[in-house]
Computed example of a mutant assay.
Amino acid sequence: MNAVTGKFDDPVTATASSATGPALGEVEFQYLRAFVLEHCGIALGEQKRQLVQGRLLRRLRALGLSNFQGYCELLRRDPHSELGELASAISTNVTSFFREAHHYDLLTDELLPRWLQQKRRDGDRLRIWSAGCSTGEEPYALAMVLAEALERSDGTLDAKILATDLSPQALESARKGVYSLERLAGISAERCQRWMLRGTGEYEGLACVHPRLRELVTIEPLNLLHPWPMSGPFDAIFCRNVVIYFDQPTKQRLFRRYADLLPTGGYLFLGHSESLHGINDQFELIGRTVYRKLGR
């Protein structure tokens, strides 16, 4: 029976279990592989079965399901209700404040001063998109350098950062903006003093982002593979350590869509292990994983 559209009535895969919970059978695994590729753009190799099984067992328990057959049937009935949780479970959200510091140095030393001068002169707005914002460290770090640039420019400007992610848990953390003190390691002491509020009493060991940063950041759910509600343009798009999970055709489509939302000369920032080489020719590499959109 077809692994994607058929019913899951194989008695072996439906009832098999492991020492820690139900086992992920062949039929269910192939269905999940096809589902994740279609809806998330993530290509799961055959060797990922144990990883998928281990990470989804928590979802089975949370949903009160006794086997993966039931989980696959849930996805077939209502694919969108569980999509964020599934994507969050099978991907690894590794992030930190000011990760890949050279990106923020470029913003601080060159891009933001130039943009602010131009936009104040022309009456334009400034927009940055953190695509795949995870638990919020990236957009709040961007907000710190943006807020500091605005202060130095001695004026007001319509400037905002859009932060999006597919994972409901990651978005909840980002909206709270509360982090353990250990997670502030990438922030300088001066910036911690300026932008992070230390908790006391029952909040000892935690810190909250300054309200000014919240003003600059808008956090919304978004599946990068689905239609986007925003029309741009963005001055810069940060999509770091996201496309490492995608197959080649998905990367090509995604970067074309990013190019559509960037003006000529707009910037695209990727993660340290990512590249546009052989994927998209609409950008030129100008620094370490920093690309600028070409004119046509």
Rank of each mutant, 00 (worst) to 15 (best):
Q252A: 08
L86A: 07
G155V: 08
K7D: 15
H80S: 14
R292T: 00
V4E: 13
I279P: 02
T135V: 13
G186D: 07
G6W: 11
T164H: 06
S231N: 15
E284L: 13
T264K: 13
N67R: 07
E100G: 00
G177M: 11
G287A: 15
N2W: 10
R253P: 03
T218R: 14
A259D: 11
L162A: 05
P113W: 04
G54I: 01
L254S: 03
S167I: 03
M1G: 15
Q169S: 14
N67Q: 04
Q47E: 14
G186I: 02
S134H: 06
S66I: 10
V242P: 10
A170L: 09
Q117S: 11
Q69W: 06
G201D: 09
K119F: 03
G54P: 00
R183E: 14
I161L: 02
F283T: 06
D78T: 11
L65M: 13
N223D: 09
S167G: 07
K119Q: 10
R127K: 13
G205R: 12
L65E: 12
R212V: 15
L63F: 12
D235K: 02
A163F: 04
R58A: 13
G265K: 07
S91E: 03
Y203R: 15
L225Q: 11
L126F: 08
R120F: 02
A34F: 09
D281F: 11
L270R: 01
R194S: 07
L86R: 04
F269D: 01
R194Q: 11
R175I: 12
D260H: 14
A89N: 06
E151M: 07
E190M: 06
L222D: 06
I187T: 11
G21H: 02
P211G: 14
E110H: 02
E148L: 00
I219Q: 10
Y267G: 00
V217Y: 05
L111F: 05
E82K: 04
G132W: 03
L254A: 02
L44Q: 01
M196V: 12
E151Y: 04
L146W: 02
L276Q: 06
L222F: 10
G205F: 11
L63E: 14
D154W: 04
L37Y: 04
R120I: 01
V36K: 09
F68R: 02
C72W: 10
A159C: 03
G21L: 07
S18M: 11
Y258Q: 01
R127G: 08
R77G: 06
T200F: 08
D165W: 05
I219F: 03
T250Q: 04
Y258R: 05
F68A: 04
A159D: 03
D165H: 03
R33V: 11
E26R: 15
N93W: 01
F234G: 03
L270H: 08
E151Q: 14
Q69Y: 05
L224V: 05
P139G: 08
